[in-house]
Amino acid sequence: MPLIPIDPAKIRRESLRWYLLVTLYNARPVGCYEDLLLVTLSAIYADTTAHEIRTEIDYLEKRRLVASKREPSGRLFAELYHYGTDIVEYTIDCLPGIARPVKNWGG
C-alpha cells in the first residue's frame, strides 16, 4: 500500500475550522469577536494570525455553518448557525474540510 503524503497546511486549516466551530459553540448564544477567536486558537497554534481566522471564518460562512459581521471599525463578529451547532454536537454528518474528531463514545 503506498504511503499518503502528509500535508501540514491542510491539517492546520481543517483543524482551525474545527476549533473555530467549537469556540463559537462555547460562545453561544451570543457569538464572539475575532479577538477571542485569535486568543483561543493561539493557545493551540501559537503563530495563528487574524488573517487565518478571517479566511477560515469566511470558509465556514460559505458552508452556512457560521455568520459573521464586520463592524465599521473593521472588527469581525461571528456566531454559529444551527448547522454549525449540529456539526459540533455530532447530530449531522461532517463533510470533508473540517477536522472533526471521530465520535468514539456512546449515544
Rank of each mutant, 00 (worst) to 15 (best):
R64Y: 04
T48N: 03
R13K: 14
D35H: 13
G74Y: 04
T23H: 13
I44C: 06
S15N: 07
L38D: 11
S68V: 10
I53K: 06
H82G: 00
I53P: 09
P96M: 11
G31N: 05
L60M: 10
V66R: 03
R13C: 10
E71Y: 15
L20S: 00
L80W: 04
D58Q: 06
T49Q: 08
V30Y: 12
G31M: 07
L38S: 15
A50P: 03
K69I: 14
G31W: 04
Y90K: 01
D86H: 09
S15M: 05
K62E: 14
W18Q: 07
I11M: 11
L60H: 04
H51M: 03
I57Q: 04
R63T: 09
R12M: 09
L24T: 04
R64K: 11
L95G: 08
I53H: 03
D93P: 08
L37F: 09
E14Q: 15
E79L: 06
I92D: 00
S15R: 14
V30K: 15
V39E: 10
T40M: 09
Y83W: 08
R75H: 10
V88W: 03
A43S: 14
R17A: 03
I92L: 13
L41Y: 09
A43F: 02
I92A: 13
V39R: 14
D47V: 02
V22F: 00
L65E: 12
D47G: 10
F77G: 00
A78S: 15
H82S: 11
S68T: 06
V39G: 04
L37A: 04
D86C: 01
